[in-house]
Amino acid sequence: MTIEYFAFGIAYSFTSWIFGMVFNSILVKTEFYNRLSHLNFIESKTVNKYIGLFYFKWVVKNTFFKFFNQKIKIQNKNTSLADIRREMTIAEISHLIGFIFVAVIAVLKSISVNPVCGATIMLVNIIMNLYPALLQQENKRRLDKLIVNE
């Protein structure tokens, strides 16, 4: 049964990426979005290391995930760091919206099916939505240091 729940988690998470992008395109037109673009859940490099963000970053850089968002890539010296930061913000907030979407589903599945189902879906959600958002936040902090020095 847990493999079935794991498959549900993957399906919900992939679906949440689309939901996140659609909802983000609506949210970007609001004043509230500017405040969202400066979120920092975990500022400590030590905590990021402790939760394994370094390993997640390695997986993203060295697997097929590196092909997902080509707009977040420095192509040459003419690449605008501000544009890359804006694309990082879009990706981060889309993942956070997706995370909330799947978290609600996980709670509902915990109640309607069983807690193992909800926990398994939530575990997949953390890996596929929360970690990418945390990685974008870390990358934005690094990029902000370069933008200030430009």
Rank of each mutant, 00 (worst) to 15 (best):
T2K: 11
E4W: 09
F6C: 01
F8G: 11
I10C: 09
I10H: 02
A11S: 04
Y12H: 04
F14E: 13
S16H: 02
S16M: 00
S16R: 01
S16F: 11
W17Q: 07
I18Y: 12
F19A: 08
F23L: 15
F23Q: 02
F23S: 00
N24K: 01
S25T: 00
I26T: 09
I26C: 15
L27E: 08
L27G: 05
K29M: 15
E31H: 04
N34V: 15
R35H: 15
L36E: 08
L36C: 13
H38L: 14
L39I: 03
I42E: 00
E43S: 10
S44C: 03
K45M: 04
K45L: 05
K45Y: 12
T46Y: 14
T46N: 11
V47S: 05
N48D: 11
N48I: 00
K49A: 14
Y50I: 01
Y50Q: 13
I51S: 02
G52K: 01
G52S: 03
F56R: 10
N62L: 13
T63Y: 08
T63V: 08
T63K: 00
K66H: 15
K66Y: 08
K66A: 07
F67Q: 10
Q70S: 13
Q70L: 13
I72P: 02
I74N: 09
Q75P: 02
N76P: 14
N76M: 09
K77P: 10
K77S: 15
N78T: 06
N78Y: 13
N78I: 08
S80W: 10
L81K: 01
A82I: 12
A82Q: 12
D83C: 11
R85Q: 02
E87N: 14
I90N: 01
A91R: 07
A91N: 03
E92T: 06
L96H: 04
F99C: 07
I100C: 04
F101T: 01
A103F: 06
I105N: 02
L108W: 08
L108C: 06
L108M: 09
K109Y: 15
S110K: 05
S110D: 05
S110A: 04
I111F: 02
S112R: 01
P115K: 03
V116N: 13
V116S: 13
T120C: 09
I121R: 00
I121D: 04
N125F: 07
I126Y: 03
M128C: 12
N129M: 10
N129W: 02
L130G: 10
L130M: 02
L130C: 00
P132Q: 04
P132M: 06
A133Q: 02
L134C: 07
L135N: 01
L135M: 07
Q136A: 04
Q136S: 12
Q137W: 03
N139I: 09
N139R: 07
N139D: 06
N139W: 06
K140C: 15
R142Q: 06
R142K: 15
D144I: 07
K145A: 12
K145D: 03
L146N: 12
E150R: 07
